[in-house]
Design a protein around this nucleic acid. Structure first.
Length: 111
DNA sequence: GGATTGACGTCTG
DNA sequence: GCAGACGCCAATC
């Protein structure tokens, strides 16, 4: 059973995001049955406190780097995404729909 | 203890 | 199709 807090699940799921892929708050919230995408954002906000989580791979429904402002450096998030081969323009992921990773398809990594 | 905010999403107009 | 309002649940002030 999961004695961990709901954000612990978010941390784990966020770490499972394959490199070069991104996901949305709503997808994670739906998969983890949190009830609201805001809970995911809340969890990731604490993720920086003693938790190394690739939160830069998590964007909103619009593929927008909404949380970049909460990073140590706003440009860090975009830089990390570009470093993984993700194209980012105007704080938004270009091939967002193509790079979108669904929590239920975590086995669809490779290729 | 109450009110507001918060890395969002969906519905209605 | 775009804009605005409401809803979610938890944490912080």
């Amino acid at each position: 059973m999961n004695t961990e807090s709901y954000y612990q699940k978010v941390f784990d799921l966020t770490r499972l995001i394959p490199k070069g892929r991104i996901t949305t708050y709503g997808a994670m919230a739906s998969y983890l049955a949190l009830g609201s995408a805001r809970m995911v954002g809340w969890a990731l906000n604490k993720s920086f406190v003693g938790h190394s989580v690739p939160a830069h791979r998590v964007v909103n429904r619009k593929g927008e780097l909404s949380g970049r402002n909460h990073f140590p450096n706003p440009e860090l998030m975009q830089q990390l995404l570009e470093s993984e081969g993700i194209e980012v323009e105007d704080n938004r992921v270009i091939n967002f729909k193509d790079l979108f990773w669904d929590p239920g398809e975590e086995l669809d990594i490779d290729l």
